[in-house]
Design a protein around this nucleic acid. Structure first.
Lengths: 229, 229
DNA sequence: CGACGGTAGATTGTCTACAGTATGTGATCG
DNA sequence: CGATCACATACTGTAGACAATCTACCGTCG
């Protein structure tokens, strides 16, 4: 028992450096998602180690984690290569994403609290406002936050983790197409909130499915345009 | 170009030992799923290294992969502990499993070839026969093969990989309850085959959903009995 | 008698060194 | 001139060693 009850979050947690492999992992993931390291790039352990100022071991461990999560391919006795997704794989990822998001919407309809719904509405307002200002960065961030919130309201941590991984991969593959679906997307978000508020699992699933399929269509049409170059 | 066309599979692939971390990973996974290493067990790198006759490094790498896949918890500067799932987590895993299997059934209905359907029927026959003989091991293996085949026919590698991971975790958590749903389960498999043959995605989804939910109910009722001890 | 501080043991995190293997290049032979 | 073989190179795979950190126990003080 503590002698004094501390206010929640009062302790600054005093920034621990944390394991090196973690920081290396994050650094490499940033380099990959930002396309500084393009798909197919050969990643040499000693080079990365030198550039990051650490030994090879943390780099190895980070690379293996990246391999497990599908960011790099680890060919035996040859090294790590940034994964180059095929169109087929990208399509499969989108299918799975749709599936997971739709289920999250269903569970959110079943479990969401009214406080959670208010948070969704708040995010929606922010997103709509940013869309009006054509503030792309805020739109993208808020969109991610909205979907993340729906996932949180679903209350299924396993589902959330899978979805997070799949989402990040999808975003990576389609980042070259700087998509922007404007106001229509947020209108669909509003419909989703309505379905969740009504506790209508079927409708929530359907709305989310339609929504992510629209996003898919948007992605792929842009992808085709890019593909011509 | 090769001077002589070799018959497919004629080359024995001359058993490569493969990376040590891989073999260590498989060994540890076997020890965990077989409950030789019980949940909560503290895994000490140097001990495992000694017992397996290798250095600490391959053990470390295997442990980190196991951590990424949810088999062990890796507490910083303290070591690895076999993951101890909560009832809530197990339930969430079952939910996700149902979702993934149902989608696989839908895709299989959309994409299965008639050859694939015949393979499903063959597996079904084997399973039914084993069920009659009350050959539990064969029943379990064939059941896994059946679901794996459905997943293969779905033709979505991303989905298949996620499902494989989730399935293995589910089986691990519920292995203490040696379940056995007998003939009823195979009847449901037959219904699934019929739906796939008819290319009826809706029905295939529904049948698989019902099927896995039955399995869930079976699991949980046994789990409750166990829980009394 | 309870709480605090110090010390010892053990374990992880990281670095360096060595061995094994695949790749690319150049010389040699048909 | 083309193909093949041998060599050199570079990188990964593994092992061993050192430093940092956490846990547990014990003695001491209030």
């Amino acid at each position: 028992m503590l002698s004094a009850e501390l206010p929640q979050g009062a302790v600054p947690k005093l920034e621990r450096p944390g394991p090196l492999r973690e920081r290396v992992y994050e650094a490499l993931l940033e380099l990959i998602t930002s396309r500084t390291l393009p798909p197919g790039q050969h990643l040499v352990e000693s080079e990365l180690a030198g550039q990051l100022g650490v030994s090879r071991q943390p780099v190895r461990e980070a690379l293996q984690r990246l391999s497990n999560e599908g960011w790099v391919d680890l060919r035996p006795a040859q090294g790590a290569f940034v994964h180059a997704p095929t169109d087929e794989e990208a399509d499969q990822l989108l299918t799975v994403r749709t599936l997971l998001e739709a289920e999250a919407a269903r569970l959110a309809a079943a479990n969401a609290t009214s406080a959670g719904i208010r948070e969704l509405e708040a995010l929606c307002a922010v997103g709509e406002e940013a869309a009006r200002r054509e503030d792309v960065e805020t739109v993208v961030d808020t969109n991610a936050a909205f979907h993340s919130k729906v996932m949180e309201l679903a209350g299924n941590a396993v589902l959330a983790e899978l979805a997070a991984r799949v989402d990040q991969r999808v975003r990576w593959y389609y980042t070259p197409v700087a998509r922007q679906r404007g106001a229509r997307s947020w209108q669909e978000h509003r419909e989703l909130i309505a379905a969740i508020t009504d506790r209508d699992e079927q409708r929530a699933t359907g709305v989310m499915r339609t929504h992510t399929e629209h996003t898919r269509a948007s992605y792929q049409s842009h992808s085709w345009e890019e593909g011509q170059g």
